[in-house]
Design a protein around this nucleic acid. Structure first.
Lengths: 332, 332
DNA sequence: CTGAAAGCGCTTACAG
DNA sequence: CTGAAAGCGCTTACAG
């Protein structure tokens, strides 16, 4: 197969100047119709494709964006990644993705590396917004949006997130409406913003209804289903009087369900469970977990759209907080 | 914060030539020790970082690779993506990922787009190797490896895959060793190479043991758990005499389990089930699916390593077929 | 409408 | 050890 790789060779082949070829290729109006057609034909015939690295250097635009996530194998983030990629590729952008495994060194390396590559923007879910990562983010001089993390007051970075607090309130209100008064909480890591917001919703709603909360009704799980089982066990052992639990995410909720099933504790009769996230697996017959849904794929799309707006300097660069939805199934 | 963005400005600041700065930056030995230190200090002070787009243009090397997957939200591919990203980023490469949604137009667009961007290599899982995609692949003149797809004889592209046929044989042998003689098969789409290989293992092993196979003992599911439930139902309705089923992947197997649970058909007493993949969720207490494990993350790593070997023109660019592992749990 | 020249931000022979 | 020049593959004023 014939292939020509530079505009120079193409120009030579056509016996015209490089500038004319370039103009024809870029749809400039001031090119003779015949010339343009000749160029286009030659492009076809010789399989010429412009080198976009060279183009990027001139235009100072790479049409790539960076996507930094803690773990693409986490179904939460993989759905988001689908939304991001879809929106971006539809707009001619490509996505460089980095898994940080929640390691701040990897976060830093990924950021440096994409900055060197001159990405046009970046969508990030930093693990924890500590002082160091805040200062790193502040130094970022390119368009950026935060995914699933609120901007600390001092920073002016737009974000896409879900109303964790409001969602938690919905969950607890639902439990209360079912007659529960003694409700436990299964949290994620205590340094997690998300978890803390959901905890706050739990606490406030309980108090609003004058229901008792206590430290022993609150347990911390981790990032796995298994950790949810352990946390449920710990909670149940210490507070066997609770009749319902709010799991701060579905993975933990499913873990709780698993342990309850093992112990033959009936759900929802003996123990009601409500989750948060609405993962695909939560709707399986084996779980049918009542949960608070957040639109994951849409979050990815919105983040990409917001970033695009910032890149194109359009109006409306405001953060977006999405509403959650109660999905009632069989566990409460 | 002071920031200087070009080597030219840096040279001006230091009152030396651009070439010397470049040499100092790139650790050439023929630079005066003091000069080098001055440069490095200035780099630090002025936060200078070389533009890697410009570097790429000269070196004809971008240190990026393309990863094309059907669907990153499929747990199978997200695990692979983790392995790929990890290995590649450890070697200074970044990964541009594309979700094709099994759409051949998107496959084509993604490939064109990364080729224009001059990626150094590409790891692909094309959906179906039909004539057109084969010809597209043949035209690919950069290092490439196929993931989870065998190269058709006519093509000389290395691949990483698992021994689907052998794994299926293991599955059926296991079922037979448990005394089953009437075994059904739940397949994926009939144009799927993977599914057909697993079917072949089923068929051959059945025949080897002189066991009867028939079209009505074979049903086709889709890509979802739900489709597995439907296929299980169809199979059971038509062939209620079977005592075991080989689900060609875990998603289908879990779907089958779900339907059996709904119908209160005991597993494994009334119906044994074995899957293929060993997804994380298969080990949950609610499923405990016996299955054939394939090392997903490792496949990603191996694919990345193989690609790196090809890029660096090292020895040993052979395809790798990985062995599977029987994971015995509670469903047969 | 077309071409020559300069330049994007770098690197690398080459000469000194 | 250092600098000037050419060049990677393009684009874009500028002049004609």
């Amino acid at each position: 197969m014939l292939t020509i790789t530079t505009i120079k060779d193409l120009a030579k082949y056509l016996n015209i100047s490089v500038s004319t070829v370039s103009r024809a290729l870029n749809n400039h109006h001031d090119v003779n119709q015949t010339t343009r057609e000749n160029v286009l034909q030659a492009v076809e015939k010789l399989n010429y494709r412009p080198n976009s690295v060279a183009r990027s250097l001139i235009h100072k635009k790479t049409y790539t964006i960076g996507l930094m996530v803690p773990d693409i194998a986490d179904p939460f983030f993989s759905s988001i990644a689908v939304g991001v990629e879809q929106t971006l590729s539809n707009n001619g952008y490509q996505v460089i993705y980095g898994n940080t495994s929640r390691d701040s060194l990897k976060e830093k390396q990924f950021l440096e590396s994409i900055l060197d590559r001159k990405v046009d923007g970046v969508i990030l879910t930093p693990n924890i917004l500590d002082q160091e990562s805040i200062s790193t983010l502040e130094k970022l001089e390119i368009p950026r949006v935060l995914l699933r993390r609120r901007t600390p007051a001092l920073l002016d970075i737009p974000f896409i997130d879900v109303d964790h607090y409001g969602g938690a309130c919905k969950a607890i209100n639902h439990l209360i409406s079912k007659g529960h008064t003694n409700i436990g909480f299964l949290g994620m890591a205590s340094d997690s913003f998300t978890s803390n917001e959901r905890l706050r919703g739990y606490l406030d709603t309980m108090k609003k209804h004058q229901l008792k909360v206590s430290a022993r009704n609150q347990k911390t799980a981790g990032r796995t289903i298994e950790s949810g089982s352990f946390a449920m066990e710990a909670l149940y052992r210490e507070s066997p009087d609770i009749t319902a639990v709010f799991a701060s995410n579905d993975l933990i909720g499913i873990g709780a369900l698993e342990w309850l099933k093992m112990e033959q504790i009936n759900v929802p009769e003996q123990m009601a469970v409500i989750g948060f996230d609405n993962l695909e697996m939560s709707e399986l017959y084996s779980f049918q977990l009542t949960t608070i849904a957040q639109p994951r794929k849409q979050m990815g799309q919105l983040a990409a759209e917001l970033l695009l707006r910032i890149i194109n300097e359009e109006e409306n660069k405001d953060s977006i907080i999405l509403e959650t939805n109660l999905i009632e199934r069989k566990t409460c």
